[in-house]
């Protein structure tokens, strides 16, 4: 019953002569998969979501559900339920009526829809507040109702546009778990828009990263850390160490010195990147003498800036390792943690 969603070459311009908000986006979402559209604000991710919902018509490209184009289907017949950044509950209806709205619009029998509404409210732990008005609920409660309202219609696609961004931090992680659990249980194919990379990593089966309307990388979350497609992608995911150099025969000559790679790399100009948490304070292969230039205590880790002969490196180490500014250390860049990008 789950469907496959495909976007093929989808573009959208708001003004006829303006820059495209979305340029040639092609991704496919497998049945039951949850894909996050990730990117900074204004990158086109909400535009993409609205195109899938049918609220915007693409200026080029196609949207297919199970191989059939849905561009000719108006939003109300796409069975693509959307949860917005704001809860947007209907203010003149109580919680139960809000949740039952979609069933009522489709003419579901009253008795049947009453029990489905109850079940949906139970899933989001709101059954005791079924008769409240939206104005009497907290922001988190409202968003839970909005989620139930979308899910109760048994949609083919669940589209979520930053549904958690208006909530405070504690509530956000709780809601995140709820969203993930409900999506898994229902097996509904889902697209989730967010600007928060942590949220995308925790929630999504796959992430589509967009900058300025252009897809940068589409892969599993782990890949964005291990094998970023570009320096910009690596940077968005918190990588800070970039070493330019020339690669030949499995080694790269960098300002730091000669580094051996674990994986074969193309010959020529490259950029090496290594995540701060992958650096080791130990000797051995790819190790160099360094001096601590600064240390910032972050609670669960300590951020160090290391000065070596030819470069500055950022290292994130567990807090029990206590090093003072000016201390001399040996730092190792494990070959298996080095990732090569073309320059």
């Amino acid at each position: 019953m789950s469907v496959r969603l495909e976007l093929e070459g989808v573009s959208h311009r708001y003004a006829r002569d303006g820059d495209p908000a979305l340029a040639d986006l092609s991704i496919s979402v497998e049945p039951g998969e949850l894909v996050a559209l990730l990117g900074p604000s204004g990158c086109g991710k909400t535009t993409a979501l609205k195109v899938v919902a049918g609220l915007l018509a693409p200026t080029a490209g196609d949207v297919r559900v199970d191989g059939r184009s849905v561009l000719g289907t108006p939003p109300e017949r796409r069975r693509a339920a959307m949860v917005f950044q704001k809860p947007l509950l209907f203010p003149h209806m109580d919680v139960a009526a809000n949740v039952g709205f979609g069933l009522r619009m489709r003419g579901a029998p009253k008795k049947d829809s009453a029990s489905r509404v109850r079940e949906a409210l139970r899933q989001v732990q709101m059954e005791s507040l079924a008769n409240r008005r939206p104005g009497e609920l907290s922001g988190g409660q409202q968003q839970r109702v909005a989620l139930a309202r979308a899910l109760v219609t048994d949609p083919q696609l669940l589209l979520m546009d930053e549904p958690l961004s208006a909530l405070d931090a504690n509530l956000r992680s709780e809601m995140r778990d709820l969203v993930k659990q409900l999506q898994r249980d229902g097996g509904v194919t889902a697209v989730f828009v967010t600007h928060d990379q942590e949220e995308a990593v925790v929630l999504a089966d796959r992430i589509a990263l967009l900058f300025d309307g252009v897809l940068q990388m589409y892969d599993r979350p782990q890949a964005f850390y291990d094998r970023p497609a570009s320096r910009a992608v690596a940077g968005f995911f918190g990588a800070t160490n970039f070493l330019e150099g020339r690669a030949a025969n499995g080694t790269v000559r960098t300002p730091l010195g000669k580094l051996r790679l674990a994986r074969p790399a193309p010959t020529g100009d490259v950029v090496l990147t290594i995540r701060p948490e992958a650096l080791r304070l130990e000797g051995g292969e790819n190790s160099f003498a360094a001096r601590i230039a600064s240390a910032t205590y972050l609670g669960t880790q300590v951020d160090y800036t290391l000065e070596t002969g030819g470069a500055r490196l950022r290292a994130a180490l567990p807090p029990h390792v206590r090093l003072g500014v000016g201390e001399e250390v040996t730092v190792r860049l494990p070959p298996e943690s080095l990732w090569t990008l073309e320059r």
Binding site: E76, M82, G102
Partner: peptide, 12 residues
């Protein structure tokens, strides 16, 4: 905005 929500929920 509410109209868009209603639309995605199947309202004509």
């Amino acid at each position: 905005e509410l109209e868009e929500v209603a639309r995605t929920l199947g309202a004509s």
